[in-house]
Write a protein that binds this DNA or RNA. Structure first.
Lengths: 197, 197
DNA sequence: AGTGTTGACATACGAGCCGTATGCGAAATA
DNA sequence: TATTTCGCATACGGCTCGTATGTCAACACT
């Protein structure tokens, strides 16, 4: 039993967990690494040893959240038997998830600003990858128009993502959410081969 | 002639101009206000007097760029006689504009992270407003499905914007751009009432 | 088991940046 | 011309990040 590595993994998890909270509440720039580490009984020494620098910690946090999002979206999509309905469900799930302030702040706002475009993230953006696969499947089945799969996936995700930001910033998210979902599904239908939905 | 106000406006313009360059090249966080001001022969005193704080300067810069973008997009849209084609042209123009590193960095990445969701910006996001107006017109003409105009506009802009980030980050933007534009137009056609384009 | 070595983390330090409080001098005013 | 205004410069304090150095428990080897 490696007591050393065990403790290290535990500390990494603690730091990531604390970072999720701090980044979500204060934003990346305003989050103090001294405060962050002290809340879990560590110092910046542990942080810089484990993650290199502040960006490294954010990258680890984003990676974790992104994985969770992909999992949830895929599950939402799989619950519908139909592939096309699955794609719509995934997009809708995406919109709903982005209502979570943590996801908004960390993944949608600070993430791109600090780490650059999501498509080049080391985490490889699991969400996008999942969408691309469904799109490719639908194209090969002739259900979707033959457009570039990655382009379609990015546009869909981008639209959903932006809709979510809008809904979240709205004073009455509950009223606006269905409007966003409706518009999203209408938009997505433009990718269908058979005009009649 | 008010020599005082004249000089002040001149200094404001100088600072905004320098900020556009610095924010675009180094990013908002890494741009030093001391360096910024000294490049135009001023000090931070001028900055804080004119813009309140660093965020205020970014807001002014974003406002200026946003206005320029709206102007360009509207011009692109107006060049086509058709309203629907105009909407597509605007979206395409949006994608192309976002290839500019300055726009990417300042408006698409740092802007949302520092100032929050664009829809609540003081500048009121001229681009979005213009799109909403066209969408409303198309809906009232029965050309577009009756979805919420703001929702549709936000989704369209979001999709275009995300596509642009993707194209810009691509190693071969020239090859990817047409794919993005094609997918965007296909997607947008989902908002049409008559399935046959 | 005893000893040397590794390495995960703590501590100490330096540099840079932002925001505010204060001072100054030219332009506006009367 | 005397006075007030105010746009900007200067000076200061506090905070933050990243690195360089120290330390002590966990491991390896004999």
């Amino acid at each position: 039993m490696n007591k050393r590595a065990e403790k290290m993994a535990e500390n990494r998890a603690k730091l990531i967990s604390a970072a999720r909270k701090a980044f979500a509440e204060k934003g990346y720039a305003a989050a103090s690494m001294d405060d962050l580490t002290s809340t879990v009984g560590l110092t910046r020494g542990a942080l810089y040893h484990n993650f290199g620098d502040k960006r490294g910690l954010l990258a680890a946090v984003v990676d974790q959240i992104d994985s969770e999002m992909a999992l949830y979206a895929q599950k939402a999509g799989a619950e519908t038997g139909d592939d096309w309905q699955g794609l719509l469900a995934e997009g809708t799930a995406y919109i709903e998830m982005a209502l979570d302030p943590e996801i908004q702040r960390i993944v949608l706002l600070d993430g791109p600003a600090v780490l650059g475009d999501p498509s080049q993230w080391p985490s490889q953006n699991s969400c996008l990858q999942a969408t691309i696969q469904i799109v490719e499947k639908l194209i090969s089945q002739g259900i979707m128009k033959t457009v570039d799969a990655e382009a379609a996936a990015r546009l869909l995700n981008g639209a959903a993502l932006n809709a979510a930001l809008w809904v979240a910033a709205s004073p009455t998210p509950e009223e606006v959410l269905p409007l966003a979902v409706e518009a999203f599904q209408a938009l997505a239908s433009g990718l269908l081969n058979q005009p009649a939905r």
